[in-house]
Write a protein that binds this DNA or RNA. Structure first.
Lengths: 159, 159
DNA sequence: GGATACTAGTCTCAATATGCAACCATCTCA
DNA sequence: TGAGATGGTTGCATATTGAGACTAGTATCC
């Protein structure tokens, strides 16, 4: 689990991997313990809480997760009584999602926890550096999720 | 798969996750196609190539992977004829690992590919920004793999 | 009033990944 | 010689995941 090596001369992806892996794995376990939910579930919970009445299809779209996975996450939130659903009057296939009281509460807990964890994670960085990092990651994030990026990858390998 | 949302006001961990996830997933598939190996296997291959005669135990230590996983990776590299082993004359439990010619070749291919992929990944960043990012990630990487980090997490949740 | 095609959402199944722990072989040291 | 450590492998049980079949409801078109 521990990386002894300096990874001084490593690749960006490698460093990213280390940080993401380590931070997320640790956080996920903590969230699970404190809220009973995994990070991904909390993310969907937040989505529902932010746009009450949202639907499966919308969540699918905005998270970019797989259909079956999304379905399972929603099932799990339903099962934990964090959200509930009501049928759409117009379309019986569709249901609208809302957070329960318990769901709202868990969401708050998760947010506080998330705040605290983020502070810990960024302890070695100054506010300025933190802003820099956020900006850089934001741009990289946009880039790697863009179709142009995928295209560039194709090209690089085709040749 | 695609993230439509801006993730403007998201957490650092989330951004990290997006970038790492996306970049690594994409790269891994490409490495597999071009070299027949996953990134992790290539990493071990590189270790072996860099310190010929290294052992299972050393690799275990420097990668920080699980014993069984490490064993399987080595098996797989052996099976693909990228490395070979010879028994230690001093200790019959130990074997020394070396890269085969094919292994060296694959390593070179992987390095070139890795170079190209990194260029693509960092396309939106200037050289300066790239250096910044690397520095920041390096420090974060050290931090999140340190025992102090884990300790801080414990503390934060205990209270 | 079908027939057809489409969408929303669920579920099953099979593949893969992963960690744990038992295990064998060998070595060390007393 | 025996107890315990070390090197390395393997079996097993479990979690994760995506693909695609499937149900149910809707829309369209004749």
């Amino acid at each position: 689990m521990l990386e002894k090596k300096t990874f001084q001369n490593e690749r960006l992806t490698y460093r990213l991997d280390i940080v993401a892996q380590e931070a997320i794995r640790a956080n996920d376990a903590i969230f699970l313990r404190e809220t009973g939910c995994r990070i991904r579930e909390l993310r969907v919970l937040r989505l529902v809480d932010d746009s009450p009445g949202t639907t499966f299809a919308e969540i699918l779209k905005s998270t970019g997760l797989e259909r079956s996975l999304t379905s399972r996450i929603i099932q799990s939130l339903l099962g934990a009584d964090l959200i509930y659903r009501e049928n759409s009057p117009e379309d019986a296939r569709v249901f609208f999602l809302q957070t329960t009281e318990k769901g709202k509460q868990v969401r708050r807990i998760a947010r506080d926890l998330s705040d605290r964890l983020e502070v810990i994670l960024t302890e070695p960085l100054s506010a300025d550096e933190m802003a820099q990092l956020n900006g850089l990651l934001l741009r990289l994030g946009r880039w790697v999720t863009s179709p142009e990026y995928k295209e560039s990858l194709q090209d690089a390998c085709a040749k």
